[in-house]
């Protein structure tokens, strides 16, 4: 018992000071009208919450978060699995390809965001095009040219495209790790039984990859719900709040307008949404995967 206390105390202390305490403080502040200066004087109950939940901009933000959650699962997942299956075969330059897909993930978020902010917009279309539109023209796809970051109807798709470019490498690496742990005997056995490459993947590889996919999906969902940096750098939540997320909303309307009480209410709502989704996901999707790691032994 002493050892347990000795080894877990530092971690517990840090966890309490930097996770639990801020959560509790945010919940506390969210009931006050407070600009962050001076003492708390004006208790307003749930007013910050009612204001937040009736704000159409916040509705857009929540919708945008869930758009990214779903689009990531539906689009990034399958692409990542396909590329991982491909890169898992014996290919020339396999190492090089693996490195290439992983490069965007290694880039700092702010650098990547700034790069896109410079590449995507066209300064004075159609006379002066940005690098991306110029490239589209050059390969004969000039008709696809868009106001990538300025059009309210497509800006979230642009953001999603950038996020896919940035994070697909991480998904692929995870899948490759899952694949490399798979015993070759199983695929050999399938081949001997007459299964083709596709059938082998579908009936043997994919089911075995299940735990990896579920963990990746979990990370992707949580990341999408808390999406902040890329959006903040690339669009700042604009135009006209069309690309706001819950986190950018919190910074824009909480910190930047010095409404710390209101911003705390946003933080609490974001926390509750993430927590509920995480718990439900763990309870239903990850239950089997986590069994060995959480329970004390095999029953």
């Amino acid at each position: 018992m002493l050892e347990v206390g000795f080894f877990s105390a530092p971690a517990l202390l840090i966890y309490c000071a930097f996770v639990l305490l801020p959560v509790v403080l945010a919940a506390f502040y969210s009931f006050w009208n407070w600009n962050g200066l001076g003492p708390l004087e004006r208790f307003i109950g749930f007013e910050n919450y009612t204001r937040l939940l009736s704000d159409p901009v916040f509705h857009t933000a929540v919708k945008n978060n869930f758009f990214i959650v779903i689009a990531s699962l539906v689009v990034q997942g399958p692409i990542a699995i396909l590329i991982a299956l491909l890169l898992n075969r014996r290919l020339r330059f396999r190492g090089l390809f693996r490195a290439l897909v992983f490069v965007p993930y290694v880039l700092a978020e702010v650098m990547a965001g700034l790069a896109w902010r410079i590449i995507l917009p066209s300064p004075n279309p159609p006379a002066v095009l940005g690098p991306f539109d110029t490239w589209l023209e050059a390969i004969g796809l000039g008709d696809l040219r868009q106001a990538w970051l300025a059009d309210q109807t497509i800006v979230m798709w642009t953001i999603f495209g950038i996020l896919t470019w940035k994070y697909i490498g991480f998904a692929i690496i995870l899948m490759l790790a899952g694949l490399s742990g798979m015993p070759e005997e199983l695929t050999e056995a399938a081949a001997i039984d007459g299964a083709g490459w596709w059938k082998t993947q579908w009936y043997v590889t994919l089911p075995l990859l299940g735990p990896t996919i579920r963990i990746w999906a979990f990370l992707s969902i949580i990341g999408s719900l808390q999406l902040f940096d890329m959006v903040w750098i690339v669009t700042g939540g604009g135009p006209l709040h069309a690309s706001s997320t819950m986190a950018t909303y919190m910074v824009e309307f909480g910190r930047n307008t010095q409404q710390i009480g209101f911003g705390s209410a946003v933080a609490v709502v974001l926390f509750i949404i993430s927590l509920v989704i995480a718990l439900v996901y763990q309870r239903f999707a990850l239950r089997r995967d986590l069994q060995g790691s959480i329970t004390s032994g095999v029953k």
Partner: peptide, 21 residues
């Protein structure tokens, strides 16, 4: 063009950049 999607400063496609260019 696209006034609502144009940032004010720092990048070439900002309004300051457009004037500078």
């Amino acid at each position: 063009a696209n006034p609502s999607g144009t940032p004010a400063q720092s990048v070439p496609a900002s309004s300051a950049g457009l004037l500078a260019n």
